[in-house]
Amino acid sequence: MTTERLLELDAVSKRFGRVVVADGLSFGVRQGETLGIVGPNGAGKTSLFGMISGDLRVDTGDIRLSGTSLTSLSTARRVRSGVVRTHQVPRPFTGMTVFENVLVAAQQGGGLRASHAVDRTLEVIEETGLAEHANVVSGRLGLLSRKRLEVARALACGPRLLLLDEVAGGLTDPEVDTLVSIVRGVNARGVTVLWIEHVVRALVSTVDRLVCLALGSLVAEGKPSEVLARPEVKQIFLGTGAAVDEAPGGLP
């Protein structure tokens, strides 16, 4: 694995009134890796994605993509430079078909024209297993398909860094496996993935490294098994000494 850093957070801080969502947070995401993020509710995970994707402004600190600062760019500009997020609760354009949803992303986020955009759209729909739903109005999709669409739309933007926010949440075990294999495939073709997930089983089976956050601070960083074995991580997660692996199907 190369150690070149694609994304770098440099002392990022953000607070909403008295709630601290990032407190001098610094870590890097290596080119080509899959980095998992775990942490209890309120640890600032989703806010972190907001700051990386541009939905939220950082108070202080800097976020850099390949050495270039992102913090002053709009969300749309960041998407064009390759930073694309998904939402925890899928947010398809409900009045449009799956195909149209992905096409908008391919044209705008991916900056592709005409037939290139259509090609990309079809590829991504195939890759995420949505082919049979391509002409379905997305408001009628079930949860798994909505999650697939959320990933498909992000992929159509041609990301260098894909930010996945709990794509496995709320799914059954076989469905989680389906999504995990999609994410592995995406990573295998060179897309760097930063993945927030409560379904620890899905993370551990996929990620190269793991970061644990709590109250906007970095608690631990390293190999998944090592991070989960750290007493402070166990403490945060379960409030007891129980091993994370024993939690059935993942953590609440």
């Binding site: 994707s53 541009g54 939905d55 709009s74 969300t75 749309a76 998407v79 064009r80 694309v84 997020r85 998904t86 939402h87 947010r91 398809p92 354009f93 409900t94 009045g95 449009m96 149209e100 949803n101 096409l103 908008v104 992303a105 044209q107 705008q108 986020g109 991916g110 900056g111 739309r153 992000a154 159509a156 933007c157």
Partner: peptide, 18 residues
Amino acid sequence: RQIRALADDDEAAAITGV
């Protein structure tokens, strides 16, 4: 299509590069 995307969900439109 971008206008319809925006009408549906402006934040989601922004993260698809609109």
